[in-house]
Design a protein around this nucleic acid. Sequence first.
DNA 1: AGCCGAGGTTAACGGTGGTTCACACCGCCA
DNA 2: TGGCGGTGTGAACCACCGTTAACCTCGGCT
Lengths: 198, 198
Amino acid sequence: MTSTRDAALHADVDRPSRREQILQAAAQLFAERGSRAVGVDDVGAAVGVTGPAIYRHFASKDAMLAEMLLRISERLAEGGRERVAAAGAEPADQLRALIEFQVEFALDNPALIVVHDRDLTSLAESEAGQVRRLQRRYVEVWVTVLARLHPTDEAAACRARAHAVFGLINSTPHSAGRLDRPAMQELLCRMAWAAATA
Amino acid sequence: MTSTRDAALHADVDRPSRREQILQAAAQLFAERGSRAVGVDDVGAAVGVTGPAIYRHFASKDAMLAEMLLRISERLAEGGRERVAAAGAEPADQLRALIEFQVEFALDNPALIVVHDRDLTSLAESEAGQVRRLQRRYVEVWVTVLARLHPTDEAAACRARAHAVFGLINSTPHSAGRLDRPAMQELLCRMAWAAATA
DNA sequence: AGCCGAGGTTAACGGTGGTTCACACCGCCA
DNA sequence: TGGCGGTGTGAACCACCGTTAACCTCGGCT
């Protein structure tokens, strides 16, 4: 127990632990080729070790993917909650905060965004359910805000609206690099706002 | 030669040929679980035959996926071209036509939409390139229209805009069923228009 | 009637890739 | 100094799955 906590501390302060290196490299590879298409040997090679060495840090390849997806979902759910809480009582401000948060996250972590919604299917049902619960929590944050901005809309419409805005913002990996980051950020925020309030 | 043409005719007029049944069932399964996670036995079972029977109709599992993706890309590229041509000279009308087309396609073929951008990575480079070329053609149709509506924007911005609108509309599979089809269609068109013109 | 091609079936093959095993190295602590 | 836990390696194991092979059936055409 203490040893894992120590490892976590080292991960933050020191240079990333081998475990973190693996997760990051795996995320990159999974995003490029899909989790099923990359082997443990590939992941190992990406951090300079052989394939089986992975099993000193993770119980299985699936456990790696599970932890990756769980972290993403947690970061989103918690980040969304925080940003809304910090944005005051006005729903318009809350929406603006959510959009900025999601855009920043998508631009900062294109690989995670890709893996997040492509490789959820290749996860054991137990862990997939956990991820879906977190995703749902995040969606509900958006739905709550959107519902206050569109009082006449039914909940289903707000949910569809939220997913549509996610799709819009998460399109980043498909068109990244062409436009410089600040311009991209501004454009996505503007479009997302227009879509969310249309 | 004539036999294949006859088969194609039958496919349109008569009930779908076994080949078409396979493609459709495969699309459904690929969308649900990802192409690498479904076996040829699964596809066979879905149409009431055993796995190896597939090879009477397709050279390989990859060939199945390739044909699926090529068809989608072709339908989109051609459909986009046609709709724009039929919409007259006004770029606003052309954009409206493109949006309506994409929304209809996404709502009619959620499975194809999912497979289209998730399983492109698990395709041989030669065929993947062919698909990407078609995708590019479709994107360029959008970019051309968007560029006329936003004369001050550079091409990269218009491309990002197009991808963002795709992401918005293609979010359908993630939130389908909750809202009835006409309402969904109206909502997506409204949001897409707002995003594209923001 | 009798071939023949289309389309199916079961069994088997072979490669790929996740996982395990036995062993080696190394820094740390008693 | 001598064990010991943590980390890495190469070899082997094993299951899964795409693919092929050999054989069957049946409808149509001569």
